[in-house]
Design a protein around this nucleic acid. Structure first.
Lengths: 240, 240
DNA sequence: TCTGAGTACGTACCAACGGTATGTGAATGA
DNA sequence: TCATTCACATACCGTTGGTACGTACTCAGA
């Protein structure tokens, strides 16, 4: 073996850290290669998609081999999940930051929407989270992930808004409303992300959603009660 | 060669059609194998998903070979697309039938919603259209397909409802509203399809959406105007 | 009725890819 | 110094989507 393995070549280019090994050099190397894998995978997934991105392509881009990849991840899907989580974490943090600007629930809702509409224009978010997320992770895992990030935020806001309207609804109905609003926002995001002119699209979406919210607010202020879903149920008792 | 090919065995089980060959027997055989392929693929895709379903599994179930499959389709994705189209066509027809029951726009909207919420409980629709459709077909093709079916219906209804409210809005805004409502309905459908008790979930979703629609109606009737999206645009003129 | 062409497949094969089993050298602790 | 362990590298395998090609059957026309 005349030439050393590619991984060692990168290591040579890494900044030497002669500090006290609070974390060992091995751990640092390890973390750095893992991050390299995730970073490169993110790029490839973003502009080629999951299926069209081979593991070979990823490890080549990260200048390691499949051995390294399988040391850090259990498989291709796990790599995707790591990429997914990173993107979602970034997005989530960004929205939370924006939300701090206001206290009023209705205001927060619009601010959150605006922040979300910015994020959704990011190519990686579109590809990894919106487009391929559900299919690659499976619906179950996808929803688990979302629960902890974007969807969780929507649910928080819906709760605030509806409580502000003095509607005292069950957890189930809150969940239902949240799902519906989340779907609406996702579609809105999609609409923006595929628009020829995103600025205009954002303005239109904001107008539309603000109008819908205004409708709800109007109902709340004029004291219209939320109907009981039970009324819609046929009164037979044999269920499932 | 003692035993004949598998395809000929099925042909033997087919009803003999000694009629005048308005369509030739070859064409009939061909159509029948094609349908067999689509039918079996639909089943397999539904309960195993796209990736986990191999072509071998499909052709075995349809009692033909890959040669036959590749004669009728350009590849695996094309098979999926055929399955997708069939499901969407069925769903679309079902909704259109339901919509005929009423003339009132707001009423039609709710009827359409009800019909959609029934459809979305179908396992094949969930798997093929909702879950895997976007990823397998690619967003572009997926949206083309939806344009011609479910989304097209939503758009029709949104147009009716908004026109009924005497809102005279641009095509762009109509598109935006439609996208948002479609997203809301998709999420609603998802919510129903994953619910432990679908009946209850349907009732909740109907209540929630009816409430949102009522909000819009209330705004319309009290003469609240839809804001101009242009107002939200920053007044710089350098765009894209 | 015979024939030639075209259709509707079947069969054999390949390259690519995800995944695994195993080897190896550097870092770490004793 | 030495053994152990970690962080990879290397070699290999099974499956799968796709292709090339062979073949039986159908059907129009002579």
């Amino acid at each position: 073996m005349p030439s050393r393995s590619p991984a060692e070549k990168i290591r040579a280019t890494l900044p030497k850290v002669p500090k006290v090994p609070v974390v060992s050099r091995r751990a640092q190397y390890s973390a750095s290669t893992k991050r390299a894998l995730v970073d490169e995978a993110l790029k490839l997934f973003t502009d080629q998609g999951y299926a069209a991105t081979s593991l070979d392509a990823i490890v080549t881009a990260a200048r390691v081999t499949k051995g390294a990849l399988y040391h850090h991840f259990t498989g291709k899907q796990a790599v995707f999940e790591a990429v997914f989580e990173q993107i979602e974490a970034d997005a989530s943090a960004q929205i939370r930051t924006a939300l701090k600007k206001s206290k009023d629930p209705w205001d927060k809702a619009l601010i959150g929407l605006r922040a979300f509409l910015q994020i959704v224009q990011d190519a990686s978010y579109q590809r990894v989270v919106i487009q391929e997320g559900p299919a690659v992770l499976g619906y179950e895992r996808f929803r688990e992930q979302e629960e902890r990030s974007s969807y969780g935020l929507v649910q928080e806001m819906v709760r605030l808004v509806l409580e502000d309207s003095a509607y005292d609804l069950s957890e189930d109905m809150l969940e239902t409303f949240s799902r519906i609003f989340f779907g609406a926002m996702s579609a809105a995001g999609e609409s923006v992300s595929t628009a020829a002119n995103p600025k205009v699209a954002v303005a239109q979406v904001e107008t539309a959603i603000a109008f819908i919210l205004a409708g709800l607010r109007s109902l709340a202020e004029s004291g219209v009660a939320l109907p009981d879903p039970e009324d819609l149920l046929p009164d037979d008792e044999d269920d499932e």
